Amino acid sequence: MIYTLFTWLLLIISSPFLWFLSFRQKFIRSLRARFFLYQNPKPKFAKYHFHACSFGETCAIEPLVKELKDCRVSVITQTGFDKAKKYADCRFLPFECFLPFWLSRSDVLIVFEAELWLNLFRVAKSNGSKTILLNARISDKSYKNYLRFKFYYKWLFKYVDLVLAQSQTDKDRLTNLGAKNIKVVGNIKSANLPKPSKHYKKPDKRVIIIASSHENEEKNLLANLKLNHNDQLFIVPRHPERFNSVYNIIKDSIKNISFERFSDNMGLNSQIILVDTLGELVNLYAIADIVVLCGSFEKGIGGHNPIEAAQFKCKILSGEYIHNQKDLYKAVSGIEFCSYENVWQKINSNLKSTKIINMCDMDKIIKEIKG
């Protein structure tokens, strides 16, 4: 196939760069597995093959995998792999050129959100699999780019049997890109609310969380820091490779305020705590009063899921850049929007508690997958 030959050519050209990049700690396993098949053998047969990108997506599919049982999972990122391997047989998804001989048969392929790889669907169909695009979405920002390559997506959707879209807007956009047999079922992340894995005692303080923060967000949110003596601030970076740099940002930004790493003490005693371990965010949401939901203050990220915090009726503050999460934001009432300049003024105002107002039906999705 011409497309597969084209992807082989791309791999040959980019291999030196990819090999060099693979020595970075963030990519040391994922790039070598995906582009050089290092320690990434062909998966065994399973009735259901789920493909998801990273940590958040692998969290979202976990209840489905456990319910359907005979499942395997493929991922793109290291954090996604670390999460998925805890509940299923997991592999890194190789680059397109490897899939014709790497992808073994499954009865059903379920691809999560926007992981639109042509050979993944094409090879699965040639293996006799039913193919499903789950939780499908096309963000406002990315839609124009999708349209530029409409010919590619029209080709790809020939191999997709069923599309389960998040919203009517997503359905309309997917239809324009060539998708068929589309059903609107809502966002699965609104039906799959992660529950605390640990239960911390609520401090006799106002607990504020800067949640899922990205580069520049910690520095700018701390620039106008106004903590009351009865406040406790948790800072939870989105990516673990930034833990050390965020530690230095906090150290340089504060004066005369007690500060510690979460991993050093676990006692939750200091006024500011850097949460430098994965999997703690939902545990902290359960005791939070106010959540500053990041990924929304800097252009180009698109926001993060507000429902995880809203299930605990936290008061939520957000930046304006939420283009990747608009449907989830619509499912939550009471979110306040702010900027770097007025976030602390908002925190010390009369905020309302949030409430989830639109839930997705997980049983309906399972029924669709089973056919």
Rank of each mutant, 00 (worst) to 15 (best):
L274A: 14
N220S: 15
L268D: 03
L293H: 06
D252Q: 14
N248R: 09
L278P: 00
I249Y: 10
F234L: 11
F234R: 01
L281R: 08
V275L: 10
S263Y: 07
K251N: 15
L233K: 00
S258G: 07
E260S: 14
D264L: 11
L274W: 14
V236H: 04
V291C: 08
D231E: 12
N248F: 09
N256G: 08
G267M: 09
L281S: 06
I254Q: 07
L281P: 02
N224M: 04
I257N: 11
D289Q: 05
H229Q: 09
R242W: 06
R242I: 00
G302W: 06
I272D: 03
I249M: 13
E280W: 08
N269D: 12
I273H: 07
H229T: 15
R238P: 04
V275W: 05
L278C: 08
L281V: 04
S263I: 10
K255G: 01
D231V: 10
S296E: 10
I301Y: 12
D276G: 05
F262G: 03
R261K: 12
G303N: 14
Y247A: 14
V246N: 07
E260I: 13
L278R: 06
S270H: 10
N244F: 07
H229N: 08
G267R: 10
I235E: 02
M266H: 14
C294W: 08
Y247G: 07
H229Y: 02
L268Q: 12
P237Q: 11
S253G: 08
G302Q: 10
T277N: 13
S270F: 01
N265T: 15
V292Y: 03
L278D: 00
K226Y: 01
E260L: 04
K219R: 10
L268G: 12
A288E: 01
P237R: 11
L222D: 05
V246H: 11
K251P: 02
D264A: 13
R261T: 02
L222Y: 04
L233P: 06
G302I: 06
S253C: 09
C294G: 15
F234Q: 03
F297M: 05
D276C: 03
K226P: 02
V292S: 02
F262M: 02
R238A: 09
E241M: 05
E280D: 06
V236A: 12
L225H: 01
L268S: 02
L233G: 01
S263F: 09
I235V: 13
H239W: 08
L284V: 05
L233F: 01
K255F: 01
I257A: 06
Y285V: 02
L222K: 11
N248C: 03
F243T: 00
F262C: 03
G295N: 11
I250W: 09
N265L: 04
G300Y: 14
Q271G: 07
N228K: 15
A288V: 01
L268N: 11
L233D: 04
F243P: 11
